[in-house]
Design a protein around this nucleic acid. Structure first.
Length: 120
DNA sequence: GTGTTGACCCCCC
DNA sequence: AGGGGGGCCAACA
């Protein structure tokens, strides 16, 4: 009978939603995929969040989304390899005031910014 | 159309 | 306390 013409969440504004949250990340702070996913409902898993950032890379000329402020749960710059340069992410974070050593965010616990906790 | 990987995280042993 | 496996949805080959 009725055919499910309803688009999937990804087809919806999920990508744009992630971009908006990442854009709200204040300078000098970093967020995590799980935190963002959890803020959005944690239904698609953190993996999709990272995928959404791929489409948000400023190198593509799309919306300026500070994807460099998004790191993994370990505070490691997992997505540095996806940037224009392997050091672009680290350079950007250090410019923001975030100290990064060996692709690892120092004092990650302090610079960690949780949208569902502070943004609310 | 099927199979595999992926900017990951959580649960179980 | 540490280690291993499964899960989530989507895009690419």
């Amino acid at each position: 009978m009725n055919t499910p013409q309803e688009p999937t969440e990804t087809q919806r504004n999920f990508f744009q939603d992630v971009h908006e949250v990442v854009r709200l990340i204040p300078p000098g702070r970093v967020s995590t995929y799980g935190a963002i996913a959890h803020y959005l409902g944690a239904r698609h898993g953190a993996r999709m969040v990272g995928y959404a950032l791929i489409a948000a890379v400023p190198a593509r000329g799309l919306a300026q989304v500070p994807a460099q402020r998004v790191v993994n749960r370990n505070g490691l710059l997992t997505g540095r390899h996806h940037f224009s340069t392997p050091t672009a992410m680290q350079e950007a974070l250090e410019t923001e005031g975030v100290q990064v050593i060996d692709d690892q965010v120092q004092d990650f616990k302090n610079v960690f910014w949780d949208p569902a906790r502070e943004l609310l």
